[in-house]
Design a protein around this nucleic acid. Structure first.
Length: 432
RNA sequence: GGAGGGGUGGCAGAGUGGUCGAAUGCGGCGGUCUUGAAAACCGCUUUCCGGGCAACUGGAACGGGGGUUCGAAUCCCUCCCCCUCCGCCA
């Protein structure tokens, strides 16, 4: 969340920055300032009363010790009235705290100054491309055809089992998915210095709030419940990304400065309800309710946040380079950024069968927005500091799968397995 | 799921209604001593929120929440987590 002190000090600048985002939440700043002022006024009043009460209580204590019962009783009656007022004001402060936090948690992060102001995805500048669109001397097939003919995915039965948007990988398809996961984990742990973690696939509400998924995007999550006991529903949620558990690993902790930076890398399935997205580009495996992903997470000092973002993006790009896939890197404008992010690069891979680019990675620096939400800090000479939290896909597997088979398909309908994947696939070709 | 035990500062571990934010030990930081180091000795060593330019000052926090009381780490209720034993199970 945004630091309330920052809002206090620069309300207009914050409001303006908020208004550059799609939510246009700038108008809520005035509301926040008003709550903040009321809160502080009540606080100083109630704290003065508490100071008096603390003093009186000590006096009563010593009167009792001296055996002056009557005096003590008289004093008690006096203080009791004050106590009632304290109870009332405490309740008011608590209520205002609740209102304030509600607003604060509903506000997205402020875009970094290097992020261009824009309305939507059409305003995202393209930063670079790598490689070239592959050329074919035949009509490249879409992945749906390839999956069907090579028996990689059984779309029909996937839908039979779990409904539309769920995939049943079969044979070499299942192996390719597993090979990709292992290749990515080995790359990031072996070459890029990340520590592998294998997190729970369900998390508590607090974790979802911590990364900024909740409260705003509850409708995008799958809530689980124990059997038919509805009272347990919403205690746990299926993770929409490994970011939810992994970024929260150190929530509520104070780390030592020399523990930073921390690099984590996690493979996990991701579950997304995709409410409201039905029918929009849902064919095949491009938008599904469950997909696998290798996620990268960094906890770093604020002064390194943006260097680390560049490095993380390069780590994700490396994946596509090694697999020989053409891609481009895009900088998201203010109007297209994710809720918690201050700056985001999207990496889009070319999918010849779709004749379009597919987003396979989104690398973001959330600055201290998430660390504040989860109360993650580290101790430095200067005091306790909220670190920057970064997350990036390294990468999503379903779409990588699509780009891979569409790019490396051959005229005879087979797929060439790129060199780095061969040890995992134990073959250099996927054929009928 | 059943029975019992327990959650206190970085760690260990006292404290069962009144200067307890918390004894003591370990660890850590600074100092004395020493050519240097060790040992010994002395001091310091949590976090959050207000007020103040600041020195400083007020409040809050002993797993979470609620209650009793002038006053709660201490008493009561409730939830969570951990440990031991039994049952069940991958």
């Amino acid at each position: 969340m945004i630091d309330i002190k920052r809002i206090r000090e620069n309300p207009n600048a914050v409001a303006e920055r908020l208004n550059s985002r799609q939510g246009k939440d700038g108008h809520r700043i005035a509301e926040l300032l008003e709550l903040d002022e009321r809160r502080r006024k009540l606080l100083s009043e109630v704290e003065d009363l508490k100071a008096l009460r603390n003093k009186a209580s000590k006096e009563i204590g010593s009167l009792m010790a001296q055996g002056k019962r009557d005096e003590a009783e008289a004093r008690k009656a006096e203080v009791r009235e004050q106590g009632d007022r304290i109870t009332v004001i405490d309740a008011q402060v608590k209520e205002i705290d609740g209102l304030r936090d509600e607003v604060l948690l509903a506000l997205p992060n402020l875009p970094h100054e290097s992020v261009p102001v824009g309305k939507d995805e059409h305003d995202n500048p393209e930063l670079r491309q790598w490689g070239e669109k592959p050329s074919f001397d035949f009509e490249p097939k879409p992945h749906t055809d390839l999956c069907e003919s090579l028996g990689l995915i059984d779309f029909k039965r996937g839908a039979k089992l779990s409904g539309s948007g769920f995939l049943l990988y079969t044979g070499m398809g299942a192996r390719l998915e597993r090979a990709l996961a292992q290749f990515l984990l080995d790359l990031h742990t072996g070459e890029h210095g990340y520590t592998e973690v294998s997190p729970p696939y369900v998390v508590q509400r607090d974790c979802m709030v911590g990364v900024g998924q909740f409260p705003k995007f509850v409708d995008q999550a799958y809530a689980v419940q124990e059997g038919l006991d509805e009272s347990t529903r919403g205690n746990l949620y299926l993770i929409p990304t490994a970011e939810a558990p992994v970024a929260n690993i150190h929530r509520e902790e104070i780390l030592r400065e020399d523990e930073l930076p921390k690099y984590y890398c996690a493979f996990s399935p991701c579950f997304r309800a995709e409410a409201g997205a039905a029918g929009v580009g849902t064919r095949g495996m491009i938008r599904v309710h469950q997909f696998e992903k290798v996620e990268l997470i960094k906890v770093v000092k604020p002064e390194h946040g943006y260097d680390e973002l560049e490095k993380m993006t390069a780590n994700a790009e490396k994946v596509l380079q090694l697999l020989g896939l053409h891609y481009r890197v895009i900088l998201l404008c203010t109007g297209d950024m994710g809720f918690a992010s201050a700056k985001t690069y999207d990496i889009e891979v070319w999918a010849p069968g779709q004749n379009s680019f597919l987003e396979v990675s989104s690398c973001s620096n959330c600055e201290d927005y998430q660390s504040r939400r989860m109360n993650l800090r580290y101790k430095s000479e200067a005091g306790t500091v909220f670190p920057h939290l970064l997350n990036g896909s390294g990468t999503a597997l379903a779409r990588l799968f699509v780009a891979l088979i569409e790019t490396h398909q051959r005229a005879d309908g087979s797929i060439r397995v790129p060199e780095p994947l061969r040890p995992y696939m134990k073959t250099d070709v996927i054929a009928v």
